[in-house]
Design a protein around this nucleic acid. Structure first.
Length: 253
DNA sequence: AACCTTGGCAACCGCAATATG
DNA sequence: GCATATTGCGGTTGCCAAGGT
């Protein structure tokens, strides 16, 4: 079966998503759902192919996305499942709520396989090499065919926090210095039910805040207000949203 | 300071699976 | 049952920031 890739259409945009596009897509999906990804871009006023929209939503804009560093437990789960399942990233992601297959794949390639490679290079007290390392034998080579370099021991405990970079691309007005004044321990973690409650229930006080937020921001719909706020939903930004809601509105912006 | 290399991540591409008419 | 459309998945690429020389 042969058909042209959906993104071959002339005039369709590719590359990084802008804040405005994110808002449009978020607002549209929240309001109408995503019955048909193919038709969605046109209806949402986006110059993107449906595939691109779907990917953006699933990997970045979904409210239940859990951002930020992977915990040691999550890493161990990935390693364990990868041993059992191989490169079945979606299956692995199913066991890690809030994590996407793409994210897990990236973490595997950038961190975990190195960790296993190091394990392979480190014999146990009896001089044996660990079995876990066998799972990454073929993966020890990167796409250009070169052996991946051995990481330093500290490399595994500090994953890069992508929030800083992403945050700077969004005009939330929140300064990094301000971010550093808070730690996530100071605020309760926002779990999945928080978002599902906030976005799905008419009775939810969270959801009922969005019209007021939209009004304050002079946005047309509560969904656009959500879109605006969702830009703050990068890793480490969840608590800002919480602050925002607890403060009772937009005074903090 | 300028240039080069590396690492991390978002996004794209192509194929397979599934749904629909 | 077949053709086509759509969705899902995994591999790969390209950009950018950070670190090294």
């Amino acid at each position: 079966m042969v058909r042209a890739p959906c993104c071959d259409k002339v005039g369709l945009k590719k590359g990084p998503w802008t804040t405005q596009e994110d808002q449009n897509l978020t607002a549209y999906v929240l309001q109408h759902g995503h019955g048909n990804w193919r038709a969605l871009p046109k209806q949402a006023g986006l110059l993107r192919c449906g595939k691109s929209c779907r990917l953006r939503w699933i990997n970045y804009l979904r409210p239940d996305i859990k951002r930020g560093n992977f915990s040691r437990e999550e890493e161990d789960t990935i390693i364990e499942l990868h041993e059992k399942l191989g490169n079945k990233w979606s299956a692995i992601a199913a066991s890690l709520p809030g994590r996407t297959d793409n994210e897990i794949k990236n973490v595997w390639h950038t961190h975990l396989k190195k960790r296993l490679t190091k394990k392979l290079a480190t014999p146990d007290s009896k001089g044996h090499f660990t079995a876990a390392a066998s799972t990454c034998d073929s993966d020890s080579f990167n796409s250009s065919g070169k052996m991946s370099p051995q990481p330093s021991s500290s490399e595994f405990s500090s994953f890069t926090d992508s929030s800083t970079r992403t945050m700077e691309t969004h005009s939330t007005g929140v300064k990094n210095e301000q971010m550093e004044e808070y730690s996530t321990e100071s605020f309760p973690e926002i779990d999945e039910s928080f978002w599902s409650d906030a976005l799905s229930s008419d009775n939810s006080s969270m959801a009922s805040d969005f019209p007021a937020v939209a009004d304050e921001l002079q946005l047309q719909t509560p969904e656009l207000a959500y879109g605006q706020i969702s830009n703050m939903m990068d890793d480490g930004m969840e608590f800002w949203y919480d602050v925002f809601i607890r403060a009772g509105g937009l005074q903090e912006l």
